[in-house]
Write a protein that binds this DNA or RNA. Structure first.
Length: 558
RNA sequence: GCGCCUGUAGCUCAGCUGGACAGAGCAACGGACUUCUAAUCCGUAGGUCGCAGGUUCGAAUCCUGCCAGGCGUACCA
């Protein structure tokens, strides 16, 4: 609807220029159509006249009038056009045309809301990528929800999407993990040693040590310390990664590929990148370390890739990793990181440019932190001491649907207060149920209808005369906007528009539903009932589609 | 010090990439269940959009400078 109108306006502008009413405008400004907040301003409006007026040295209202005169509404889409305010053109869509939306929703069903704006471009999203040194916490949960949903949104907008988890299974932290487990292992076998301050303190370390004793007995005590630690590290990382995988799966999050950092070392990829940089003088030696000339690529300072002790930094393998991703011919790679990693963005961008790729192909979304609350009071957490609430615990307590919905409700760039008690509440301040309830209610109506003999949902040419209450038209207009919302979410890479839209649609439906004396869906009037069933089942389709994008269930009853 | 993010109603947040009088939920107050589910609805009240300039027909939105909060700023990951 909107697209058709945009085309009309564009053609009007062009023909006004050809007719000599306007000086040629180059380039032709893009036509922006808005949905005004006030009904009196029409269904759509454009400020194009104001944008054009300046270059024409004409009054905006006059420009608007000329454009309006050149609109050829051969399909009779419009019932009225206005010039209003400083020069807006307001468009009123003919009422009959809205019913097409209803049919479209039913015809497209699960595909309603999908589009091809992605043109099949390949996008890769890497998210969560938590180190396998401990369980996932709520912050990872938010990243997981954002990543998974963004992937779904992009996919439905016509992109080819691949999801990936980068496993940091190499380096010092893994060694520290091995050390911590080995110490617990020795303690459990009666040795009197303490865990160092920089070791991992969490209770899960002890659990791992216990399992290790069950599996391996005391034989690690006979090994060299180096051997034992390596064994502990490999064992623990593998075990933890498996739990991470399970927790994510339980949260409805999956990955097409789990990419091992260690693999980059084993294959020589890290060494190759360093060699390449050396030969191109993109790195230099200083104080015994090897520095990447990040400053030459707009980072604020140069960065170390090989330390003076000969060990590579995390950054070194990160360069190799991003090189690998870019070589896989993705049109765009998206990294979703916790906001505490933002210091890293400019150096990774710098390395991408140094590799000879445009940094436009690379985008980082920084997801702000989650403050976990219970009844408005912060839940004390300390990662150091290993006291934190895990994602699994939160999902177990509040449920997958509530957690997913609340993680997605906020723009990812703003910090999120996640209140466990609110998440569990079954009332209006918990929007999950508010939206799901619509689906359950409509499902129930359909069930009731079936019991009373209204078996099929179908379209009839008489329906327009039957579905014509202002609140019904309003519902249809809202339904018409859904595809736009999904497209916009895809273009801006902002999932939160989906839940906001669903809340609005849900609210409008609840109000409609509630006035059941005025418009009961299932009544003795067979034709009217059929018409309204067609209407409400369309709403149900959209609610279900939106919730599905978010990874939230659409229950038949509640 | 520098960098990134945030600052909108008492609270939690939207605000369509510059538009027409600033929106929603919660909390507060007052109402609505013999009906297809009250996990709902209706109404009232509530804002110098952090502050000060600037850009223009027009700014919560863009620019500059302040103020406040969070995070970052390692030869850590």
């Amino acid at each position: 609807m909107k697209k058709k109108l945009r085309l009309l306006v564009q053609q009007a502008l062009e023909s006004a220029i050809t007719a000599g009413h306007f000086q040629p405008v180059d380039p032709l400004p893009s036509i922006v159509l808005e949905t005004p907040k006030i009904a009196a301003h029409g269904d759509f409006s454009t400020s194009i006249a104001m944008a054009v007026a300046a270059s024409q040295k004409r009054v905006p209202r006059e420009v608007a009038a000329i454009i309006m005169d050149h609109i050829e509404d051969s399909g009779r889409m419009l019932s009225k056009m206005d010039v209003a305010g400083p020069g807006f053109i307001n468009f009123f869509i003919a009422r009959d045309r809205w019913y097409e939306i209803l049919k479209t929703v039913h015809d497209e069903d699960k595909a309603y809301g999908t589009s091809q704006i992605g043109h099949g471009k390949h996008v890769q999203i890497e998210f969560v990528s938590a180190n396998p040194t401990g369980p996932l916490h709520v912050g990872h949960g938010r990243c997981a929800a954002v990543g998974e949903t963004l992937a779904a949104i992009l996919k439905s907008a016509g992109y080819e999407v691949e999801k990936e988890y980068y496993v940091n299974d190499s380096g010092r932290q893994i060694r520290t993990l091995g050390e911590s487990v080995f110490i617990r292992y020795q303690q459990l076998l009666g040795k009197n040693i303490n865990i160092p301050e920089d070791g991992y303190q969490g209770g899960y370390i002890k659990d791992l040590a216990r399992i290790l004793i069950d599996q391996e007995g005391e034989r690690l005590l006979d090994m060299s310390e180096e051997e034992a630690i390596t064994l502990c590290a490999g064992f623990a990382a593998g075990k933890i990664l498996e739990e991470i995988r399970q927790d994510l799966e339980a949260f409805g999050v999956s990955f097409g590929r789990w990419f091992s950092e260690q693999h980059l070392y084993d294959s020589g990829a890290v060494g190759d990148v360093i060699q390449d940089f050396k030969s191109r003088d993109i790195v230099y030696e200083h104080d015994g370390a090897l520095w990447f000339r990040a400053k030459d690529f707009r980072d604020e300072k140069d960065r170390v890739v090989v330390r003076s002790n000969g060990l590579t930094t995390y950054f070194a393998s990160d360069i190799a990793y991003h090189k690998d991703k870019l070589e896989r011919k993705f049109d765009r790679i998206i990294d979703i990181w916790g906001a505490d990693h933002h210091g890293y963005v400019s150096r990774v961008s710098a390395s991408i440019e140094a590799l000879g790729y445009s940094k436009d192909r690379f985008r980082v979304l920084l997801v702000q932190l989650v403050n976990l609350l219970r009844d408005g009071k912060p839940v004390a957490m300390s990662t150091r001491a290993g006291e934190f609430v895990t994602l699994k615990e939160v999902v177990d307590e509040v449920g997958l649907d509530a957690a997913r919905f609340l993680f997605l409700l906020r723009h990812y760039e703003s910090p999120l207060d996640f209140d466990l008690e609110v998440a569990k509440r079954e009332s209006n301040d918990n929007p999950v149920y508010y939206v799901q309830y619509v689906h359950a209610r409509i499902s129930n109506i359909l069930k009731k209808a079936e019991e009373r003999g209204y078996k099929d949902i179908y379209w009839d040419k008489d329906f327009p005369g039957l579905i014509n209450l202002p609140e019904e038209i309003q519902l249809i207009k809202l339904m018409a906007r859904y595809p736009e919302i999904v497209e916009q979410s895809a273009l801006l890479m902002e999932p939160h528009h989906i839940p906001f839209y669903l809340k609005e649609l849900a609210g409008t439906f609840h109000a409609y539903y509630h006035d059941r004396n005025k418009h009961k869906v299932v009544s003795d009037d067979a034709k009217l009932s059929a018409a309204r069933l067609y209407l409400v089942s369309a709403i149900r389709i959209i609610i279900r589609n939106g919730l599905t994008l978010m990874g939230v269930s659409a229950p038949e009853r509640m």
